[in-house]
Amino acid sequence: MLNEITTSRSNHLIDPIFHVWGWEIPVYLFIGGIVAGMMIISGYSIMKGRITEPDCSCRILPRISFILLSIGMFALFLDLEYKIHFWRLYTTFEIKSPMSWGAWILLLVYPVLIANILMAPPEYLNKYIKNPGNLSKKFRENRFILNATSYGNIVLGLGLGVYTGVLLSSMVSRPLWNSSLLAVLFLISGLSAAAAFVHMIARNVVERETLARADNIFLSIELVVIFLFIAGLLNSTEVQIKAAYLLLTGTYAVTFWVFVVGLGIIIPLLIQTRAVNHKVQHTAIAPVLVIMGGLILRFLIVEAGQYSHWLNAHF
């Protein structure tokens, strides 16, 4: 049966294929996710009292998070079409808007990261702060600051990771995004990428082993969440079934199966399982694959989500 729709409309970025968000948004979502994961790992390490250990990753993660998050926010800024109005984000709080929540969460993340950095300040801060060692000692010995930084890292990390998914899943207009599991998927993917990163850079052997094991758990959960996400779409309305097939057999199938599921999850999971069982050495291959898989997942979801539509003509 024929159902052909033609339109006289030709608005830029809307027609013929809807594509309002380019590389900036997936890059920002990925960075938000990995920073969220790093904050949770760092917060957990502080909670366990490991901030005083000289080789604990929680001493370096907040510095990396600070830089990464700033790059992510710059990407977000680049995406804005009315850049000189960006400050309007902070003149109101719109309770129903995930983007407004995100803007305020990001503002709260920075003080926690700075407090975390000051607990173990890098040497170059000696130029700017008088006696940083004394300051960091005060920070580490103050129970309130220690707890606030630890729980702040974990709570805001969870908020940041979840928000990156809710931002998309709240949009009923794009059938692929309209699943609450997207928030769980992005959170677990962020945790996985962060664990892979720490696995790659950790100087402490025990920490490296622990994070590799944790990453294996995160990757396994991610596989389950992807399965549930697809199953949820397949058991929903016609447009959502079609959106699921975009990933399973359609335009984005190769990216989904090869780069996200295969190279991004299954292969590194196999490598890391052998590594933690001491069958092979720990290398950067698996962590790099996990991190690349996380980045490609964000690109895939943003691109395919914009392609999925209520109008059948777009499929």
Binding site: H12, L13, V20, W21, E81, H85, R88, L89, L167
Partner: peptide, 26 residues
């Protein structure tokens, strides 16, 4: 238009694709 930052969330959230970004950014 004066409050709009051109984030395109509203454009993406419309099931009818009824919105667009004006060349001036809003």
């Amino acid at each position: 238009h004066d409050l709009c930052i051109g984030c395109k969330a509203c454009v993406a959230s419309c099931p009818y694709d009824a919105r667009y970004i004006h060349p001036d950014g809003y």
